[in-house]
């Protein structure tokens, strides 16, 4: 088709305004049978809309359609998963200080008192043995660990595993005290909140 774009209108003809041009759009009309087809299709969709419940109604219907046992099972499973997660999820690695500020009152000067000694701790099997640990009682071991930490305060990025049988608050107190000896963070692995488990002390 030869383009008429360069000279679309005759120079002798009337010139047009934008409004007149846009009014041409009003004359674009669908063919005669369009509305019959439109009405037929719309009726069909309207009927479907009447028969087919809306999404919210479908959800409510689904909920109320005798699925209470299934929901109870799903709910129970969720609760079990949540409980398992709470019981076995590892502590996050936390920098010392902050949330343990209360326990942080334990100072290096209090290392020998009972507060620290209540944090029963012993090396876990397979962990690199520390000098003199075999002969230690839990209390002595606890003291020994602290002393060991003190001896390694200049060494960075050394990880050791310890098994503790303390309540978390007591452990926090011990670990928090240990920060004075260069421990930067600890991670609790695979233990319930109040039970025993391995801790990694990083210092």
């Amino acid at each position: 088709m030869a383009s008429t774009q360069d000279n679309p209108l005759s120079p002798s003809g009337p010139r047009l305004t934008l409004e007149q041009l846009l009014q041409l759009k009003r004359s674009e009309q669908p063919e005669a049978e369009f509305w019959a087809r439109f009405e037929r299709d719309l009726k069909q969709r309207q009927l479907q809309a009447l028969v087919k419940p809306r999404r919210s109604e479908r959800i409510l219907g689904w909920l109320s359609a005798g699925r209470q046992p299934a929901f109870a099972a799903v709910g129970a499973a969720v609760v079990c998963l949540l409980a398992a997660w709470m019981a076995f999820a590892p502590f996050r690695t936390a920098p010392l200080g902050g949330e343990m500020a209360a326990a942080g009152e334990i100072s290096a000067g209090m290392m020998g008192n009972e507060t620290i000694l209540r944090a029963f701790a012993e090396p876990i099997p397979g962990a690199e043995p520390l000098p003199g640990e075999a002969a230690a009682s839990p209390v002595a071991e606890s003291r020994f660990i602290i002393e060991t930490l003190a001896g390694q305060r200049e060494k960075a990025d050394v990880n050791r595993h310890f098994r503790t049988e303390s309540r978390p608050q007591t452990l926090f107190a011990a670990v928090d005290a240990a920060k004075d000896y260069g421990v930067r963070s600890y991670t609790r692995e695979g233990a319930s909140l109040a039970g025993s488990g391995a801790r990694t002390l990083q210092f």
Binding site: T4, P8, L9, S10, S12, G13, P14, R15, L16, Q20, L21, Q23, L24, R26, S27, E28, Q29, P30, E31
Partner: peptide, 24 residues
């Protein structure tokens, strides 16, 4: 995809301007 223009509904000025164009 466009509907066809119903020339009966088209603005007279537009039709006149287009008619004035010779041989197309």
């Amino acid at each position: 995809s466009f509907d066809t223009i119903d020339e009966d509904l088209a603005p007279a000025e537009v039709l006149e301007a287009l008619t004035s164009k010779s041989n197309i």
